[in-house]
Design a protein around this nucleic acid. Structure first.
Lengths: 149, 149
DNA sequence: GTTGAAAAAATATTGAG
DNA sequence: CTCAATATTTTTTCAAC
């Protein structure tokens, strides 16, 4: 789908605050709210807008620690191993990457004990993975709300 | 702030779809929408809900490639180097980590040429950083909408 | 902490330029 | 594609339990 500058302005606003009323989006970009509504619908249908999510503070819901886990997969066992990862509730993201690791995983856990259990019982020792490295997040210095559009 | 099961149910719903009308949230958890509204307000004020964001497809807005960049910082130059990173539009997240890297960065770029330029001109060669490794994301196998609550 | 009901505001829809 | 007007739905407020 081809996006013009008006679409991009709408995306910028909804990326920053997904609950901005269409009437206010319309006011800010100087168009009618029916137009905004129509464009948002088309961008939703085209998959440009993939969803609207509340961002929840991890600590408030009991996740005290997060980490990046780099993994190497055994030849020929990738599918199985990846499916296993995606099924773990603590696993937030699973990316295939070039470079040092075949798979980069982002996980959240209650505390370091829970992280240890997750790693030893459910990730590192799992069939299909060789070698892993856990990089615990000490702090997040910067996190953008979305993409620069 | 202490969260009860009702709060968590609300969070689960809004994490998945931040634009779910409070009236429907109320119906699903079998409470009045005024109660939902009140609880959401309190969670927003307490910082449990940090915001609502539209999730935009990176490809649709011209970002064809993303990567994780691991960096090591020079002793005593961390502040400066981190501030520099946060100021780059392509930089989505900056995390301090234990393990192999001091800093883990998530970046988005238009294409591999743009990524190369970003790395050489703005990240790897920047004062304050020693050694870096770029792990290009070949694909994202799994990405959860939010935390398991 | 919760509710139901009223008032205010927003969204969805329609028809036409 | 855009708009204005309308119908529908939601948000917001508030007195009362």
């Amino acid at each position: 789908m081809e996006l013009d500058e008006t679409d991009k302005q709408i995306l910028r606003i909804l990326q920053e605050d997904a609950r901005t009323p269409f009437s206010e989006v319309a006011r800010r970009i100087d168009m009618s709210s029916a137009t905004v509504h129509d464009r948002v619908n088309r961008m939703e249908e085209a998959g440009v807008i993939q969803g609207y999510h509340a961002s929840v503070d991890a600590r408030s819901v009991g996740y005290g620690v997060s980490a990046f886990v780099g993994l190497r997969t055994d030849q020929g066992r990738e599918e199985e191993a990846l499916a296993h990862l995606a099924g773990l509730p603590e696993v937030k993201e699973v990316h295939l990457t070039t470079g040092q690791w075949d798979v980069m995983v982002r996980v959240h856990a209650e505390d370091t004990d829970a992280l240890r259990e997750l790693m030893f019982d459910h990730i590192a020792d799992t069939e299909g993975f060789a070698r892993s490295q856990t990089m615990i997040v000490l702090g997040t210095d910067y996190e953008a709300d979305g993409l620069p559009i």
